[in-house]
Amino acid sequence: MAHVPEELLYSEEHEWVSGELAEDSVVTVGITEHAAEALGDIVYVELPAVGDSVSSGEVCGELESTKAVSEMYSPVTGEVVAVNEELSDAPETIGEDAYGEGWIFRVRLAEEPSGLLDSEAYAKITE
């Protein structure tokens, strides 16, 4: 069973968000262990660029494994202020540590996010 940390919030598209959810604060985004396990060995991550505007529910990158490819949706709206460059050479980090070293990008929030799920609600949709 994939791990779902209690302290994070989640989107229905299997991203996690950590940090203070207020306008102008910076949050970190990644994909959940459940999503990483479903993809298998991730061999390529297409990251958004620093400075990109991302919108909640819209595609902002893609994750490719030997088995499948999956689009990555931003769970929040704002400006990308950092991306995890380590993933270019070591995309497998997402599978190894989805909630830590496998973080994907950071966003300065343009608005307070809505519609995110707590760990209990997210765990339910992955059952």
């Binding site: 060995d41 061999v43 494994s65 030997t66």
Partner: peptide, 22 residues
């Protein structure tokens, strides 16, 4: 194993990892 539906069968798609198995 992670099991998936394949042609009506519940079969292993992977055990450890796709690349390690390959």
């Amino acid at each position: 194993a992670t099991l998936v539906d394949f042609a009506g069968w519940e079969m292993p798609v992977r055990y450890s990892g796709d690349i390690a198995e390959h």
